[in-house]
Design a binder for these strands. Structure first.
Length: 428
DNA sequence: TCTGGGGTCCTAGGACCC
DNA sequence: TCTGGGGTCCTAGGACCC
């Protein structure tokens, strides 16, 4: 029997998370901004109706926000991550196989469920809503790509109550014809532009292209998308995601940085964050990259980027070792007089820490055990008392006072992950 | 004043080896 | 008077996703 895929996607996820804890905003327009309060990354249905564009720079929307009474939130990833875990935990109980695809989406295997996929999907939608407060839509299809398309249609057609099964459509080709080709999962804007030159505007036209044409212009991944649109499943559910190959931490600054010292501090801070995530996944890094990016300057010269790589003597998750390497790399690419907008670090060459401890050919440095104990202690203290309780001096003295800190002026409380910010329920 | 952050995969091309 | 064939590894760049 062929697989029945479902895609469960949270509606306007970040905006919905904010509204769970601010019920007075139900039915009101709200938006969530990216880091640095830069651009709009989530909108409630009412904000969409008010004409707030996705991805719009926040400073260009101030008038519209004021005129239409839009409530604005800085992004609060601690809250969204926790709400996501709650949604996924409910979904885990409701399907035999599940792949968490992103913070707000999961693919489910609904093959052979009693009562049929559609009824089960409606039960899932209702349960997630009741237990978490987050509204979801469910798309069902014989391939992941078609389940994605069905989900998109479920959101656009109020009549279907948030659930749509591609296989049950009376006229599936009409749906394919209504979808711009660039909106198909795996095609994207650039390929969409190229396809338009060949007269391919929608998903139906793409589906009927010759396979060799697609292979030539879009590699094997394009062929997978083509076959999936035709109903042949090529992209399976991934139950246990493979370990990450890289870990990245980067931020834009609140304002331009022009000297090495604050840049160095920021890089140390990003390393500390990335290294903590590395240890949480029981991995070590065999290398790292540091990059910086400048503003476009007044004369119209475009922004420029510089990148430098470094590697420890042996793979490690020791924060101080990685910071020293990253700062030395940074010093090599820093140029006085530049106005820097952003910096980032990427940890590369990741491998399991356990593999290393068993290696006889490549003995650990003498102080590796001591380093590991120090990091374990640091992680335990920060887990108990908050992420920035124990820090390296290189990260700068204060958590909030750095000249490079990002802007975040409208963040909601960390309702679910910080004791000091629990919501208060008032009787009466 | 001036648009986020964190990932993956595929391919082409060069270095190097036999 | 003019440079094989085949393989591996690495990197850069381009595309995609959320």
């Amino acid at each position: 029997m062929s697989t029945v895929f479902a895609l469960v996607d949270c509606n306007n996820f970040y905006a919905s998370c904010e509204r769970v804890f601010a019920p007075s905003l139900q039915g009101k327009p709200i938006v969530v901004l990216s880091n640095n309060d830069g651009c709009v990354i989530a909108r409630s249905a009412e904000a969409k109706a008010a004409g707030v564009p996705m991805g719009a720079p926040a400073f260009k929307c101030r008038d519209l926000f004021a005129r239409r009474g839009v409530t604005v939130f800085s992004s609060n990833y601690a809250l969204y991550g926790d709400m996501s875990a709650r949604v996924m935990s409910v979904l885990t109980r409701m399907a035999p196989r599940l792949e968490v695809y992103s913070i707000d989406e999961a693919f489910l295997d609904l093959t052979g469920l009693p009562g049929g996929a559609d009824a089960h999907a409606r039960h899932i939608k209702e349960t997630v809503g009741r237990w978490t407060g987050i509204p979801v839509s469910v798309g069902i299809g014989p391939t992941k790509t078609l389940a994605k398309l069905a989900n998109r249609a479920a959101k656009k057609r109020p009549a279907c109550g948030g659930v749509l099964d591609f296989s049950a459509l009376p006229d599936p080709e009409a749906l394919l014809e209504s979808v711009p080709v660039a909106d198909v999962w795996g095609i994207g804007r650039r390929h969409g532009e190229k396809l338009a030159k060949y007269g391919v505007a929608n998903a139906l036209q793409f589906r009927d292209l010759p396979q060799v044409f697609v292979r030539r212009h879009m590699t094997v991944q394009g062929v997978h998308t083509l076959l999936e649109l035709r109903g042949f499943s090529c992209i399976d559910l991934e139950k246990a995601p493979p370990p990450p190959r890289t870990l990245m931490s980067s931020r834009s600054f609140g304002k331009a940085v022009t000297t090495l010292e604050p840049l160095s501090e920021a890089v140390a801070d990003y390393i500390a964050r990335a290294a903590a995530r590395l240890r949480a996944k029981r991995l070590v890094a065999g290398g790292l990259e540091v990059y910086v990016r400048t503003y476009a300057d007044a004369s119209g010269r475009p922004p420029s980027s510089d990148i430098a790589a470094a590697a420890p003597q042996s793979p490690t998750a020791h924060t101080a070792t990685l910071i020293a390497l990253a700062q030395a790399a940074l010093a090599g690419i820093f140029r006085p007089g530049q106005r820097y907008k952003k910096a980032g670090v990427i940890l590369t060459g990741l491998e399991p820490e356990s593999g290393r401890q068993l290696s006889l050919l490549d003995p650990e440095p003498a102080n590796a055990a001591r380093d590991a104990r120090l990091m374990a202690t640091l992680d335990a203290i920060n887990a108990k008392w908050g992420r920035d309780t124990l820090r390296c001096a290189a990260q700068g003295a204060s958590v909030t006072g750095q000249s490079w800190a990002m802007r975040q002026n409208m963040r909601s409380p960390r309702y679910t992950t910080d004791w000091a910010e629990l919501p208060v329920v008032t009787a009466g």
